[in-house]
Nucleic acid binder design. Structure first.
Length: 258
DNA sequence: CTGGGGATGGGGCCC
DNA sequence: TGGGCCCCATCCCCA
């Protein structure tokens, strides 16, 4: 269930000093440009793409030996003087999203509370796992299929694409020009930019309340539902969010969950 | 304490 | 193969 258990837990818990987002794993050789990313720092190689800032010095560096990373090869400061691009293009991309908003959540089955097995947050992968980690389904047969290892953390992937996607969560190449916060994916940044622009392209058909994020609208729609998505297996009470159900369960209505 | 909004992360899927 | 998006999930904060 928790998909963000791997990295950057600190991200949500504490408002990070974004200038410290560099290499939490302290792979001392690996020095990604994010270290230089601070609000207003235009010296890092960044460029605008539809309101996004891409740190071009990061991406190519991911997949080459550090010895090949040539600092001088990174493009010099690009033209960052497009202040209007932030809000305007952000809204345009938001409008793209809006075009797809219209599929309201179909009637979804009510989920009874059967807490899924929480993946162990060990950060230890199969090939280095102690034997007791056999709870991992589908044991990896390292001998028969390629394994792509993240050099920032112990995670491993069976496809390069998946690994590249994962590595972005370390390098955070998408940087907000307003506050300097970095994200792993462009659309995450777009969503973040909406917090600056106030754009809320997702509106509730029931109450016209607007949201900047589709997921939040979806959660909100649950509040309109008579029967909510998450149901207590003991008292049959329903909740709009899993977290509420979990609170409910752990607060004594039902036998405490583990 | 509960319910809900805001913000964010990541895997999977589609093009 | 990569980018974009969907969907689910989580955490924080506030009323």
């Amino acid at each position: 269930m928790p998909r963000s258990f791997l990295v950057k837990k600190y991200f949500a818990r504490q408002k990070p000093n974004y200038s410290e987002l560099e290499c939490q794993n302290d792979t001392s050789q690996e020095r990604f440009a994010l270290a230089e990313l601070s609000p207003g720092d235009d010296t890092s190689a960044t460029c605008f793409t539809a309101g996004l800032v891409w740190d071009l010095s990061v991406l190519p560096a991911l997949y080459m030996p550090t010895s090949q990373i040539e600092p001088s090869a990174t493009p010099g400061p690009l033209d960052l003087s497009s202040p209007s691009s932030l809000s305007s293009s952000a809204s345009s991309s938001g409008e793209e999203d809006e075009g797809r908003t219209s599929d309201p959540p179909s009637p979804e089955p009510v989920h009874t509370y059967a807490p899924r097995q929480r993946m162990k947050c060990t950060g230890v992968m199969a090939h280095v796992s102690p034997p007791e980690e056999e709870d991992r389904e589908a044991p990896i047969t390292a001998a028969t299929r390629p394994v792509f290892l993240c050099k920032h953390c112990p995670k491993e992937y069976t496809s390069l694409g998946a690994l590249k996607m994962h590595i972005r969560s370390h390098t955070l190449p998408c940087v907000c020009t307003t506050c300097g916060k970095a994200f792993s994916r462009p659309w995450l940044l777009r969503g973040h930019i909406r917090t600056h622009t106030g754009e809320r392209p997702f509106s509730c058909p029931h109450c016209n309340r607007a949201f900047a994020d589709r997921s939040n609208l979806r959660a909100h729609l649950q509040t309109h539902a008579e029967v909510k998505k998450y149901q207590c297996g003991v008292c049959a009470r329903t909740f709009s969010r899993m977290s509420l159900l979990q609170k409910h369960s752990s607060s004594g209505c039902c036998s405490p969950t583990v």
